[in-house]
């Protein structure tokens, strides 16, 4: 047999002996290896987005929705920039229909008086 064939046969014999030596191992060793494997797999780091507790994900989602609602909500109502505008807004909303009519009448009276004043000044200038 050539040297190469000798080596091949030897290596095959060694591989066979090695394979036979691990199949099977003692039950105790097999159990320890299984425990080691499970412990290692258990220690596998989880992806950051996968939460350990499902309720944590839901509560975070609810908080996010609430935050969005609170941020968007106030923008739908008119913004009152000063105290005088706020006072006028409160006054207008608190008046009833009769009071609003009176205010409109007052505005009309003010307007008509201004018109009359304008006519008077115009005729005086013609005479002059």
């Amino acid at each position: 047999m050539s040297t190469y064939k000798h080596q091949q046969a030897r290596e095959q014999a060694i591989r066979h002996a090695l394979n036979s030596s691990v199949d099977p191992l003692s039950p105790n060793v097999e159990k320890r290896l299984q425990q080691a494997r499970l412990a290692a797999l258990d220690a596998q780091p989880k992806p950051w987005f996968r939460f350990q507790a499902p309720w944590l994900g839901w509560s975070l989602a609810a908080s996010l929705c609430l935050a969005i609602y609170l941020n968007i909500g106030p923008q739908q109502t008119p913004e009152l920039t000063s105290n005088s505008e706020l006072d006028a807004f409160i006054l207008m909303t608190s008046l009833d229909e009769t009071e609003l009519d009176i205010i409109e009448d007052l505005e009309f009276a003010y307007w008509i008086s201004q018109q009359l004043n304008a006519e008077d000044t115009a005729s005086a200038s013609h005479r002059g």
């Binding site: 080691a36 494997r37 412990a39 290692a40 797999l41 220690a43 596998q44 780091p45």
Partner: peptide, 9 residues
């Protein structure tokens, strides 16, 4: 065991 743990983690 140590080798398994290191590989996995």
């Amino acid at each position: 065991q140590e080798a398994m743990l290191k590989l996995v983690t």
